[in-house]
Amino acid sequence: MAKMTIVQAVTSAMRNELQRDKSVMVLGEDVGINGGVFRATEGLQKEFGADRVVDTPLSELGIVGSAFGLAVNGMKPIAEIQFSGFMYGPFDQLYSHIARIRTRSRGRFSAPLVVRTPFGTGIRALDLHCESNESIFAHTTGLKMIIPSNPYDAKGLLISAIRDPDPVIFYEPMRVYRAIKEEVPEKEYTVPIGKAEIKQEGSDLTVISYGAMMKDVKAALEKSDYSAEIIDLRSIVPLDTETIINSIKKTGRCIIVHEAPKTCGFAAEIIARINEKCFFNLEAPIERVTGPDTMIPFAKLENYYLPSEKRILKAVDKVMSQ
């Protein structure tokens, strides 16, 4: 089995699907001869031709709008947006059309497409290149929102996304694009959408996260004496509420870690669900460790923004001390 990074696993998923299904195609800026600015489409145009791996004009709205038209008329487009900060242009298409076509047409038309984009801060990039805006899409009824944290899941979830009958937003954790290398099968396989994974079983507290923060969460908890149950959500829509609730019932304590801003960040939704489903199993108030409600700072200050090991451990101590 080959060892792959997340970027390579993403490429491998698209290669498998381009081979398997003639209606699958990739479109975006620089995805052809250049193989994508992060090389996620490396070699695909050479292998599958310029009709199936398409360099488009520099036009995010055009990419997502035409991906919609392609999907409606029988294709399976995978649109690449170079950075999640460039999702605001095509957002109108996602919100006003793509997410609601099945409902509006009462099932006559659907939009089975994937929009892939790297997200998150910590790579010392320019502004708007580091957005963690996943809650916007989670709040857009009709979209699925997947965020893998490791190469194996990235490949299996992307294949599931491509085969999904509904539109999927696929956020690739940029900070760990190449930081994790693990064994990933070259052949196709799927990881189900909507199933969280318990990365580590534990009994003292539940720690919930997703994306690039999973690595930090694991590293932090290794320095803690408490027995933490670590959950990787893998997708926030649909959300695997059951796994969360079962874990809370076991541990009675919980912290949630994400780098997106605190207000209306996805932790708020998780807390609300715990409140609705198993409030009386809680031994202590839930803590969230998130980015502040600010613009994401540039390179020199970005380390202050990201939840640090220190902040995570502080939250652990706080919930354990009550």
Binding site: M25, D51, L61, G62, G65, S66, A67, F68, G69, L70, A71, V72, N73, G74, M75, P77, D92, Q93, S96, H97
Partner: peptide, 19 residues
């Protein structure tokens, strides 16, 4: 929404062409 359908049409036409 005004005009948002304009970018769907090229996509749809593109699918016909590819198929």
């Amino acid at each position: 929404p005004v005009g948002t359908q304009i970018s769907h049409a090229p996509g749809c036409a593109w699918a016909s062409k590819l198929k």
